[in-house]
Design a binder for these strands. Structure first.
Lengths: 174, 174
DNA sequence: ATGAACATGTAAGTGGTTACATGATTGT
DNA sequence: ACAATCATGTAACCACTTACATGTTCAT
């Protein structure tokens, strides 16, 4: 899975701009994917050059022009190739867990601070994800709904674990 | 958190080689971190050059020589700076979740295959993680134990979710 | 006039991975 | 003889991010 595969998938539902895509990454996709403009725009240029998508400049009222892209037949083929390839292993990297692993080398108060800030952050993420969920769930496909639920449940589970962990750490003497 | 921080943390417990570190990444760290030899060896060279660690060549019986590294006072300072810096946000990227998001574009059987293979893979990971846990938990610090439990519980939760999801997908007509 | 949201793009840098290359030693 | 494990290293590549650069439009 690279940015090209993701872009093709999004365009299958209808034409959109690079800016629109970034919005999607920051909402529905935020739990399991992200890409910056520095990835999105050059990728779109390359994909147009390769004939996977076509560009159309759209004049908007009250807003700057935007480049709206649509997927070509060739793009559809490339997307289907991706969807039938081997699933890549998940990549997860956590600074919090690494620090927990080395937690014995810092004061208990420092560790408590890490937990508190991480719980806050994850609770915000959970709110953000679940706020859009209700209308989303009615409109979308069963697998898309499952995908959103996976994110919310994992986040809820992580929050519960961290809260339990925080209580355990606080209960420690010294 | 980069490879340098992780290496420093590991060396605080005692000297070790690049090869040893890779073993650790593949066992205890496997849930939340990994690095290839192509990262480890060049990083060790650079850190030695920077005075964060020292190298000693150790002759072994029945095995090739190995370069064993130890952390210096300067290395300790660098590690403590890391431990007191801002926690970096987690990075998670999932090909499975991305495909679930686009699941409506492929046959139900394809989606079922994804779930089955992913459940297998995660169950193996869970076995691997929990196999080493018992002795590990007695020996290690409370935060290190919490770190290992986080990995196991998250994995167990993911497996339960995927099994439930698989049943839902199978129940779908068409 | 000033900031926020909309919109696109590039250049330099980063932090890795993959594949390759080498070689010792042990067990089968 | 051959595979497996132990052990180190490099070169080429890759997919990104960050910071910069530019400009429109709208609301205050």
């Amino acid at each position: 899975m690279n940015s090209q595969d993701v872009i093709l998938g999004m365009l299958l539902k209808g034409p959109m701009s690079g800016y629109d895509m970034k919005q999607v990454f920051q909402s529905v996709f935020s739990y399991f994917y992200d890409a910056s403009y520095g990835t999105i725009y050059p990728t779109l240029s390359r994909m147009e050059k390769d004939g996977l998508i076509t560009k159309e400049s759209v004049v908007q009222e009250g807003k700057p022009n935007k480049n709206v892209y649509a997927v070509t037949a060739q793009g559809r083929v490339a997307f289907m190739q991706y969807m039938h390839s081997e699933i890549e292993p998940e990549s997860f990297r956590s600074d919090l867990l690494m620090r927990m692993f080395f937690g014995e080398f810092v004061d208990k108060e420092v560790v408590i601070g890490w937990f508190e800030r991480e719980i806050d952050k994850k609770e915000q993420q959970y709110q953000q994800l679940s706020s859009g969920y209700q209308e989303f769930a009615r409109l979308c496909s069963p697998t898309k709904r499952l995908c959103a639920e996976y994110g919310m449940e994992s986040l809820a589970h992580a929050i519960q674990f961290l809260k339990k962990g925080l209580r355990e750490i606080r209960a420690l003497e010294a």
